[in-house]
Nucleic acid binder design. Sequence first.
DNA 1: GAAATAAGTCATCAATTGATTACTTCGCAA
DNA 2: TTGCGAAGTAATCAATTGATGACTTATTTC
Lengths: 232, 232
Amino acid sequence: MATRGNGGSADDTADARTAGGPEGDRRRRDAAATRQALLQAARGRFIRLGYDRTTLRDVAADVGVNLALIKRYFDSKEGLFKAALAATPRFPGSEGEFPPDRAALAEALSHQLSAGAWPDFSEHPVLLLLRVSGDERVDSLRRQALQDFSRQVLEASDPSRTRDDPTPAPDDTSRAQAERDRLLRAELLVALGVGVAVVRSAVGLQPLRDATSDDLIGPLREVVDVLLAPRH
Amino acid sequence: MATRGNGGSADDTADARTAGGPEGDRRRRDAAATRQALLQAARGRFIRLGYDRTTLRDVAADVGVNLALIKRYFDSKEGLFKAALAATPRFPGSEGEFPPDRAALAEALSHQLSAGAWPDFSEHPVLLLLRVSGDERVDSLRRQALQDFSRQVLEASDPSRTRDDPTPAPDDTSRAQAERDRLLRAELLVALGVGVAVVRSAVGLQPLRDATSDDLIGPLREVVDVLLAPRH
DNA sequence: GAAATAAGTCATCAATTGATTACTTCGCAA
DNA sequence: TTGCGAAGTAATCAATTGATGACTTATTTC
C-alpha cells in the first residue's frame, strides 16, 4: 500500500513528502519533513473525519510512510492528536493579536466563516477543537483555547480594558453581575462562530454553506454590535 | 455483564426494562418494551458519546439484554441510529407547531438552550443531529431536520407568509436576493442555537454552560430582533 | 571506506466490535 | 398439559485498528 522507501513497489497514494514543495526534495530521509507531513495529514483527517474515524494507517498512507513512524514521532494516537491540536492556528486570525474593535471583529469573523476562507471543504481549524479524543487533558486544551478566544472577543467589547487586567475588582454584586453578563454575551458570539462552522461543514445547510464574506458581513456586524456594544 | 433473563447471575447494571417506570414491570418478555428501552439507551449514548464511541454491547448492557436483540429489532447499528434520530423530538418545541413570532421565538430558544432545560448533562436532541453516522441517507435526514427548522425560524421573521407558500414568485433578481438574505439570517440564528448547544456540552465553557433561561433571554431577544426584524 | 546512528519497514499481536447462527426459555392458546 | 412461536441468550467469526519489537537501509562522521 503505497510504500515508497525501500521495499516499495508502485505508489497508489499521494506522497506529501516528495511533492514539489518549496525547496524541492533534497533528502529521502528527512525526519523533520516526515514528521511535519504526518502532522499535516493527521490534521486534515482529524478535522474532516473526527478522532475515531481517523486511522493511523490512513494517515501513514497519506504520507507514504510506515505506520510505525507515527509511534516513533508522536508515541501514540493521542500524542498525534495533541500535536495536531497544538499546531492548529488560533481561531480567527491565524497570526497576530486580535483587533480590539467591534467593526474589525465583525470583519474578521465574516471572513473566517465565509466560503472561500479555507481551501478544502470544511477544514476549518475550529472543527478540530470539537473533535472528541477521550483524553481529559486534551479536553482541557480545547476548553482553554475557546476560553482564550472568548476573552479576546470580550476585549473587543471594551477596548479600555487591557488583557493583563481582565477582571477589575467588583465594587458590588451588581457590578460583578454586569461583568458576567458581558462575558456571557462574548461567549454567545463565540458560539455563533462555532455553530456556523459546524452547520456549514457537518450539515451543509444552504445558503449558509456557500455564503461569501460579503454575504455574512452585514448580519454579523449587526449581531456583533448588539451583543458587544456598551449598554445603558 | 448484567444479564437478567435466563442464565443470569447478579446484576451490576441498571436494567431499564424492569425499573419502576409508569405501569411497573408487567412482563419479563415484552418485545415492545425492550425495543423502546434499547432505543432510549441508544439515544442517550449516541448523544453523549457520538456514533463511533457508542458500542452495541454497551447499549445492550444498559438495558440488561443480549446484543443480538439489537439486530433483531433494528437490524444493524445504522438502523439503530436512524431509529434514534427519528425518535428524537424536533429542535425547539418538542411538541406542536412553532410560534411564528419573534418574541416567542426568543423565549423558546432561551428556554431550550438554558441550563435546566434538559435533565441529564448535555443530552440535548440537537446534538444527536450532529453526530456522524457514515451513511449518506442519515446525513440527508439530518440536513432535512435542520432545514425544516430554518424554515420555521424564517416564518417567525415574517408572519404574513404561510407555510404552504414559502417562496413567493420573485419579481426580479433583487427580490430573490432579499429572500436569500432572509434565509441566511434565519440560518445564522439556527447556527447560534447549534453553537450554544455544542459549546455548552462539548466544551463546557463558563458562564455559558450554567446560564439560566433568564440569563439568556435578554441577549437572545436582541439577536433575534436584529436578525429577523423586517428591514425597510 | 567502514562503523555508528538515525530513518524507515515488516510482520504480528491483542483488543475491540459489529455481525450472525444455533440454541434455550418463556408465555400463551387450544 | 402440551406444544408452538416469539423473546432472549451464548458462543463465535471476521474485520479493523492501535501498538510494538526485530529487522533493513540510508546517511553521516571520522
